[in-house]
Design a binder for these strands. Structure first.
Lengths: 201, 201
DNA sequence: ACCTGAACACCGTTCAAGT
DNA sequence: ACCTGAACACCGTTCAAGT
């Protein structure tokens, strides 16, 4: 954007990643180009190759940043059960804030969410992705486990139950990020969460 | 592929669509090119523009074909309740085959499923998409409605309930098409359906 | 009514060369 | 250690011209 005075940029890698996130959310993955990012950073078209093996690796690092954000959001959501509209003694009181945080993240950063969970293995290859994905999943696992100790769906296998609950959250996230529900229906994250809890409860 | 003898192809539009589906499932959307399709059909790079306004419109027609397939699959699934492992008098006996058909479609044609439900409005613009999507959704609505008349979740709003059930199915479809669950977990459509019914039941 | 060829404005990526 | 410029092999798309 602004021309620089030194031959070396100094902070190119992070600028490229930051701008990649901005451009991703603004224009979508299909309009994200390495050349465009380079131009924004005021650098030649091939300069990004000094910091990323290729486009895919840049996207993988972006996905890794996304998993870090998701983990922080989930861990800060109070899944221990202090944040529920239904009262703290309700078995699902920890699950509700966890689902709210998860789907809220998808709603705030739809394109990043889609990138993180798209095939191509953006979310699989790096340890950083895996570790932070595990942190986020850990919140869900804890919340489901707590609910089971309080008598919820005690006949179900814990692993199956977590996967089913995650499916529900991932599905709703997909409907949001892909804009599948017409505006006329008038649904939003909060009233969906309500009907979601109704389905689970 | 094979060179043709007449100046006019005769069947170009459908050949392009057929090959688009084949190439989509084989190599993914990001590797699907109009020029590649034209070359396969043995035609110049610009010939496809005689049949489609642009690449997006070809993809939209492909998505429309997908919704037709999905509707047929769902309507043939016996959602009236004759096809359940749990017995025909179980309230959810119609929901089970509907979910199996829906997720089965996603598992068989993952890339087409993703295209149909991706943003860009591939699934929104044409009436043909909408009509067939409505047919498929109708099966789900019927199955949920039947379950409610048999006493399942009678306190829930029918529309919310359908959306939640659809979220669950769409979420599982996403996990399949995006290969989110490691093979080690050993999950497949059939044992997921079981745990899914456990969550709902 | 349908197909072609040249042309334009984009891509990702490689590589030898510059600082 | 990092950045550049030319070059290559791709894209989607337009348009005047061909059959």
């Amino acid at each position: 954007m602004k021309p620089r005075t030194t031959y070396h940029h100094g902070d190119l890698k992070q600028v490229l990643l930051d701008q990649a996130l901005t451009a991703l959310e603004a224009d979508g993955l299909e309009n994200l180009s390495l050349r465009g990012l380079a131009q924004f950073a005021g650098v030649s078209k091939t300069a990004p190759y000094r910091h990323f093996r290729n486009k895919e690796q840049l996207l993988a690092e972006l996905a890794a940043e996304g998993f870090t954000l998701l983990a922080e959001e989930m861990e800060g959501a109070g899944t221990k059960g202090d944040n529920s509209l239904c009262g703290t003694n309700y078995p699902l009181s920890g699950l509700e804030p966890a689902l709210r945080a998860y789907v809220g993240f998808a709603g705030k950063r739809p394109q990043l969410y889609q990138l993180m969970f798209s095939r191509h293995g953006y979310g699989l290859h790096s340890d950083r992705c895996r570790n932070n994905a595990d942190r986020a999943m850990g919140c869900l696992i804890d919340a489901v486990g707590t609910a089971q100790t309080r008598g919820w769906k005690t006949d179900q296998d814990p692993v199956s139950l977590v996967l089913s609950v995650w499916s529900l959250a991932h599905g709703w996230a997909g409907m949001l990020t892909e804009k599948l529900i017409p505006d006329e229906v008038g649904f939003n994250p909060e009233n969906w969460l309500e009907s979601c809890m109704g389905l689970l409860g």
